[in-house]
Simulated scan of single mutants.
Amino acid sequence: MAEHYSSFEPKGTRWLLQRITAAFLVVVLAYHFLLLHFVNHAADITFAGTQVRMSQVGYFSTMVLFLVTAAFHGVNGVYNALVNQGLDGTQKTVVKWSLVAAGTLLVVQGTRVASAMTGLF
């Protein structure tokens, strides 16, 4: 039988965070689809409506947390998939910091867009 291998340390912090972020993303993604695809259909979504939703502190906070969580979950997952494929040494370090930079830029730009959508900035 094949041996199970994972770059995640069993029950380690990154392993736990990957599971927690997955659970959070499932719930928030379901909320997103329900609100923006079933309650309000695509034709009903307007820039003005987005500004109204984003100006609500709870909605804004949820969307920014959704962005941060999705970025972490994606970067962490890609990094560990590459490590599972045998990435090591200098390449591992370069990939890790490149993914950290890309994730950070994504969160910064996404937060800037979300802030602009509030209509307050």
Results as ranks from 00 to 15, higher is better:
residue 1 M to L: 11
residue 67 L to W: 09
residue 18 Q to G: 04
residue 82 L to I: 09
residue 54 M to G: 01
residue 114 A to E: 05
residue 30 A to Q: 09
residue 22 A to W: 08
residue 85 Q to D: 12
residue 2 A to H: 07
residue 11 K to C: 11
residue 65 L to D: 00
residue 31 Y to P: 06
residue 22 A to Y: 12
residue 58 G to Q: 12
residue 33 F to H: 10
residue 55 S to P: 04
residue 40 N to A: 08
residue 26 V to D: 04
residue 54 M to P: 02
residue 34 L to I: 13
residue 48 A to Y: 01
residue 18 Q to N: 08
residue 98 S to T: 14
residue 77 G to S: 09
residue 8 F to W: 08
residue 28 V to G: 09
residue 108 V to C: 04
residue 33 F to I: 14
residue 4 H to F: 13
residue 49 G to M: 07
residue 29 L to A: 03
residue 30 A to G: 15
residue 91 Q to I: 00
residue 36 L to G: 13
residue 47 F to C: 06
residue 36 L to K: 04
residue 44 D to N: 05
residue 8 F to H: 10
residue 88 D to C: 12
residue 3 E to Y: 01
residue 65 L to P: 05
residue 80 N to M: 09
residue 5 Y to V: 15
residue 34 L to T: 12
residue 26 V to E: 02
residue 84 N to A: 13
residue 7 S to T: 14
residue 117 M to Q: 05
residue 39 V to F: 07
residue 11 K to H: 08
residue 77 G to T: 14
residue 110 G to D: 02
residue 102 A to L: 15
residue 109 Q to L: 07
residue 77 G to N: 07
residue 117 M to D: 07
residue 26 V to W: 11
residue 107 V to L: 03
residue 6 S to A: 15
residue 114 A to I: 12
residue 106 L to F: 06
residue 34 L to P: 06
residue 24 F to R: 11
residue 64 V to F: 03
residue 11 K to W: 12
residue 40 N to H: 03
residue 9 E to M: 15
residue 98 S to K: 00
residue 38 F to P: 08
residue 58 G to N: 14
residue 111 T to V: 14
residue 69 T to P: 01
residue 73 H to L: 13
residue 26 V to T: 14
residue 84 N to R: 12
residue 66 F to P: 03
residue 4 H to E: 15
residue 75 V to Y: 00
residue 5 Y to D: 11
residue 3 E to N: 12
residue 103 G to N: 05
residue 55 S to E: 13
residue 31 Y to D: 10
residue 121 F to L: 07
residue 97 W to G: 13
residue 78 V to H: 00
residue 68 V to L: 05
residue 98 S to M: 10
residue 109 Q to W: 08
residue 13 T to Q: 05
residue 8 F to P: 05
residue 75 V to C: 02
residue 71 A to R: 04
residue 56 Q to L: 04
residue 106 L to P: 00
residue 84 N to H: 05
residue 32 H to M: 01
residue 66 F to C: 01
residue 18 Q to F: 08
residue 95 V to I: 12
residue 76 N to W: 04
residue 41 H to W: 12
residue 93 T to Q: 13
residue 25 L to M: 13
residue 20 I to V: 11
residue 100 V to S: 08
residue 38 F to Y: 12
residue 74 G to P: 01
residue 43 A to Q: 15
residue 35 L to P: 07
residue 23 A to P: 01
residue 36 L to I: 03
residue 65 L to Q: 06
residue 2 A to C: 11
residue 24 F to G: 06
residue 19 R to L: 11
residue 93 T to D: 08
residue 53 R to Y: 08
residue 109 Q to G: 06
residue 15 W to S: 12
residue 75 V to G: 00
residue 53 R to S: 10
residue 15 W to T: 09
residue 30 A to F: 15
residue 72 F to T: 10
residue 106 L to K: 01
residue 29 L to Q: 11
residue 83 V to Q: 04
residue 104 T to I: 04
residue 92 K to L: 11
